[in-house]
Computed example of a mutant assay.
Amino acid sequence: MTSLATARTSAELAVGEPRARFRDLLASEWIKLWSLRSTPWSLLGAELVVIAFNVGIAYDHYRYWPTFDREHQAQFIEQKMALWDAFTTNAGMILILCFSAIGALAVVGEYSTGMIRTTFAAVPARRSVMAAKVVVVAGVTTVCGAMVAGASFALTQAVLSARGAGVSIGEPGALRLVVASALLAPLSALVGMAIGTVLRHSASTIVASVVVLLVLPLVVSDQRHWSAVLAHTLPYEAWMRLVQAGQYETLYPWSLGGAWCVYGAWALVAAVITVTAVHLRDQ
């Protein structure tokens, strides 16, 4: 009789208690993300490092500009090589590494502390919780990516403009470079979240993220058709295609539209995995 009464009371409470609204879940995930002291410092550190890489390359060109012959200077300006300094390859790799780790820890951190059990006990709708987490992380990293890409472009072109070699945002390909570099941050974070949701271990998640996002593009080559097709499905190669300055020449070319589709496909699949993988096994 006692058990029956307890069950009845629990059922009545469950019926009477309103379900959590999605905006409440968004607020909860926002608080959890920023309650960690490491979050703002990690984001700030990643932004400063990426910007420093880009500005450093631009300053090198500014510093050694007088040592270039006139033909080299004219070629630099004519081919709009300043766009290469706006967001360098090394800066892109650092951005991928940092933001994939931030996205992964947003998920794995709760698993390692056991907080995820409390979260799912309070809100049994696991997919809604993970969807809110995806929206918050994607939103924050998109803003951070826009700040990094915008600041990098503005600062590098300001440095090069002192030598008459800078370009404006209206230059063909400049806006595409800024947008593609900005969106690389949330894309990397979403991939890190998806891998973290599946593996649920910090070290293995970060290693897997590095392998998927950075190592695979180094393994494949564009010298053979099958390898080029595989390379064209990877986020890093898509970013490289989108930020390509000047004439694009390769053995197996692909379109800008295809590169944008790779961006969208990876982001969508990563978000779906993050939301649905929570039902694969008990927490």
Rank of each mutant, 00 (worst) to 15 (best):
H61D: 06
T142A: 11
A180N: 05
R37V: 10
A121H: 05
L44A: 14
Q283L: 13
Q223I: 08
V137W: 00
V134T: 11
I96K: 04
H232T: 00
G109R: 10
S168P: 00
A194I: 05
G257M: 06
P235F: 09
Q223K: 13
A131F: 06
Q157D: 07
L268S: 11
L36R: 15
H225E: 13
L105M: 13
W254E: 01
R281H: 10
A182W: 01
S38E: 02
A101S: 12
G166K: 07
G258I: 02
S255E: 03
H61A: 09
A149S: 12
K133D: 00
T118E: 03
A74N: 11
V55M: 06
G103W: 01
A259W: 01
S181H: 02
L95Q: 13
V148N: 00
A245R: 05
I96C: 12
G145P: 05
K80Q: 13
I195H: 02
T276S: 09
L97A: 14
V148L: 08
D69L: 14
I57E: 02
Q244G: 08
I51G: 08
I169K: 02
V49A: 12
V143Y: 06
Y236D: 01
A131M: 11
T118S: 11
L25H: 03
R37T: 11
V243N: 01
T9W: 05
P217T: 09
A259I: 07
A125Y: 04
S28D: 04
I195M: 06
R176E: 09
A74Y: 07
G170S: 10
T233I: 05
G196I: 14
V140N: 02
S38A: 15
P253A: 10
A58C: 14
W260M: 05
I169R: 03
G92V: 10
H232F: 04
A46S: 15
V178N: 01
V207I: 15
T6V: 14
V140F: 05
V167N: 00
L280V: 15
L48I: 12
R127K: 15
E29Q: 15
A58K: 07
A228I: 05
L256E: 06
A86F: 10
L44E: 01
L43G: 05
L187P: 00
T2C: 06
E237R: 13
Y236A: 11
A101N: 02
F22D: 01
L213W: 02
L177K: 03
V148C: 07
A122V: 14
A194Q: 04
Y263T: 06
G257F: 04
L234A: 10
L187Q: 01
S168Q: 07
H61R: 13
A189G: 08
L268Q: 03
I195R: 04
F68M: 14
H61I: 14
V212I: 13
T276C: 09
S188D: 01
T118Y: 07
L216D: 00
F120P: 03
L95V: 06
A180F: 09
L13A: 12
R200M: 07
